[in-house]
Amino acid sequence: MSFYFKLQFRRIERKFLEIGLKPLIGFIIIPIIFIFFSKYLFYRFPSSGYLYPILSILISFKLSEKRRNDFLNTLFNFANYHKIRLIENYIFATPFIIFLLLENFYFESLGLTFVTALLSFIKIKQSWNLKIPTPFKKFPFEFIVGFRKTFFIFPIIYFFCFKAFKIQNFNLGLFSLIAVYLLSFLYYPKPENIYFVWIYSTDSKAFLLKKIMNALICSSIISLPILFSLVLFFNGNLWLILAVLIFGILLLTSIILAKYSTFPSEMNLLQGIIYGISIWIPPMFLITIPYFYKHSKTNLENILE
């Protein structure tokens, strides 16, 4: 059993090395980020204690994945299997439980402790037969996969938009537009298998153009109702709406270029930092987009041409 955890530890170390980070530094940075993020969350939204445990439960859900658990079941006897599941669930949940206690959310902390234990006995099948329809049938594959993974968020975004018009809150409306682009952005960072690039019979420039056009068309399908409504109901703020639209376009264009600049590997730490700065200071895109484009083109030429 201890070998299993040693192996998991080694896997995490390898993951750090893959993104160009020394494991020791990684193990120091992760808790710092966690503490910073949690502190910020509770400072910004004092009632986060009700939602905070959900983050931990989502991790436990991931660990409860059926195929993974079936595999562990074949490796270990009944007692050891349940010990492993309990230990790994609590490894991830303990920091959340402690933080809830520190923020005086005692009931939530106790609830999370209980749910974490409960989830170690449950197997969750994450692939199901029910096909979720998407409006992106003709544009495989990023938006199809992404939409099916996050479909439950779209009604919330549209509800925010509807609420914005009802209470005449422009910022809330603008937030729903930004949310569409931020969500679409999440569909791109993870590189696909090289085979799905290799199959294209185009040059690298045409390939990148096609990917960017697809992203812009698909994101427009989702954002246009919000955009039109904003223009219609808040036409005094056209410049702000336009600025958000341009930011969204730059966000999607840049993440596609950034992804293929290191393809088939994931973005390393340095590129991640460069990209993060660009999002924080959008005018930086003027430098980073040509930088990522140059590297993507060279990278893809090796695969496509």
Partner: peptide, 9 residues
Amino acid sequence: MSLITGWEY
């Protein structure tokens, strides 16, 4: 890929 139908593939 996950969540892709045969037709979409």
